[in-house]
Amino acid sequence: MSDDIVLKTVDLTKHYGGVHALEGANFELRKGEHVAIMGDNGAGKSTFVRQITGVEQRTRGKIIFDGKEVSFAGPIEARESGIETVFQTLALADHLDVPDNLFLGREKTKWDWLGPFRFLDYKAMRQDTLAALEKTGVKIPNIHNTIEKMSGGQRQCVAIARTASFHSKLTIMDEPTAALGVQETQQVENIIRQLKAQGEPLILVSHNMRQVFDLADRIVVFRRGRICANLDIKSGAYTGEDVVSYITGAKTGAEYEGAA
């Protein structure tokens, strides 16, 4: 069954000087699984994501991704090996339009012998953009609008469509709906459902209990830098109240008693 595992971390630890932001995290993600990460502010959720995506270098521990132990020097390396991340701060170029942003840094080109002056294949990128938006169910009426003219929700959708439109082995979203309105949140959630239907594994960092129960198969709760619960919510054995008590520290998962 171990070849079923997309991502596994063993004793993943990050210290910032004396601050133990993340301590001994053992985490597993299986193929096609959607796992939500919850926890209070400062519980180590974003730190955990930053270690996996190579934004920061871990203090200790192992990351096994796609069957191999990995050590990413930076987010670009992580992306090249198949981890797509939607960060809290959107990495979009405001003055460029949707296809430009979707293909930024990996443009479709022609006449490649021209080196840095090779020509952009606008037509192919436009078609692929429309296909990607269709695949993710994102509705952006005019893809030639620049990002600066779009609402927060549309921007988020573009960012997510971008991660989803490239064949990635793992998608990570760090609070993708934190700044969005109701309808915009719905659209983002629809994209996540699409990913689920396509069997793409996902790590979703979120504060939104309803959203997590709607979308995730499993919740991993972080508290004070440690994982304190691993809850299979599809079984129906857990309620939102249970999760809250894990988050606040009123309860701790049996297998984590010693650690937390």
Partner: peptide, 15 residues
């Protein structure tokens, strides 16, 4: 254009 628009995004995109 991408660098002038959002240098961080350009870097994250692998430019």
């Amino acid at each position: 254009y991408a660098i002038g628009s959002n240098e961080e995004a350009a870097r994250m995109s692998g430019i």
